[in-house]
Deep mutational scan, measured.
Amino acid sequence: MTEYKLVVVGAGGVGKSALTIQLIQNHFVDEYDPTIEDSYRKQVVIDGETCLLDILDTAGQEEYSAMRDQYMRTGEGFLCVFAINNTKSFEDIHHYREQIKRVKDSEDVPMVLVGNKCDLPSRTVDTKQAQDLARSYGIPFIETSAKTRQGVDDAFYTLVREIRKHKEKMSKDGKKKKKKSKTKCVIM
């Protein structure tokens, strides 16, 4: 069974824990209790493949930012979460993405942009803004509501699919490099 290491990042209060708990335990946590770091595991079937999701729910508070490099190193894919009623959390996505790329030393890291709290009427981040940002990053965008469960499975499952595509691409690139290195030079 394939294991996928997913990391949920975003500013404090955007609903990272609520999304994760909704996926794992099928219930909505409405009281806000700032996370330092929590880890969850769940076995699911995605596109006919049974897999184990190892999900790291991270601290959004700035005082825990020193811990970010460590979990970013171990993560295979990242859910970059903002709240649709919090423009600052949307603007912060850029910083999370840049930090992930720096730590992973790669421009090509599996990510999904997630606009959470889409059940709320007080939207300050337009869907088109988020779609445009995701398009500019070359990553999928999904709106979710941890409260109603809308888009929750889709967000995590899409990230797994992005990781699969990335692994497939990397193995193809690896095979191309191996083929090239088999060419021999004969000096007579």
Rank of each mutant, 00 (worst) to 15 (best):
E98I: 01
A155T: 11
Q129G: 14
A11E: 14
I46P: 14
A11F: 14
V125E: 09
D132G: 06
I187E: 12
I84E: 15
N26Q: 12
K117T: 15
F156W: 08
E162F: 03
R73H: 15
G48C: 04
Q129F: 14
T2C: 08
M72Q: 08
V8R: 00
L19R: 00
R123H: 11
S106M: 14
G60V: 01
I46K: 08
S145R: 12
T144E: 03
Q70H: 12
L6C: 09
G75Y: 09
R161G: 09
F90W: 11
G15M: 01
D69L: 03
F82G: 12
I21N: 02
R68G: 14
A155L: 12
A66M: 13
E168W: 02
L56V: 11
P34S: 02
V103I: 14
D132T: 05
E62L: 09
I163S: 03
A83G: 11
L133W: 10
G138C: 05
V160K: 11
K128A: 05
E63R: 05
R123W: 04
D38L: 00
D173A: 11
K5F: 00
D38A: 00
V109W: 07
R135W: 09
V44S: 10
T58W: 01
I24G: 15
E3R: 02
F141D: 03
E98C: 04
K172V: 11
K167Y: 04
P34D: 00
F156E: 01
G15W: 01
I187V: 07
K165H: 11
C80T: 03
D132L: 04
S17K: 00
L159M: 13
I84K: 13
M67V: 10
L53K: 07
K88F: 15
Q99M: 15
E63Y: 03
S136P: 14
V44F: 15
Q25F: 06
V29D: 13
Y40G: 00
E37L: 02
D30Q: 09
D33P: 00
R164G: 10
C118L: 07
C80G: 03
L79E: 00
D105T: 04
F82I: 10
G75H: 04
D38H: 00
K178E: 07
L159W: 02
H166N: 09
R164F: 07
V186I: 15
K104N: 14
I100N: 01
I46A: 12
E98V: 01
S17M: 00
R164L: 08
E76L: 04
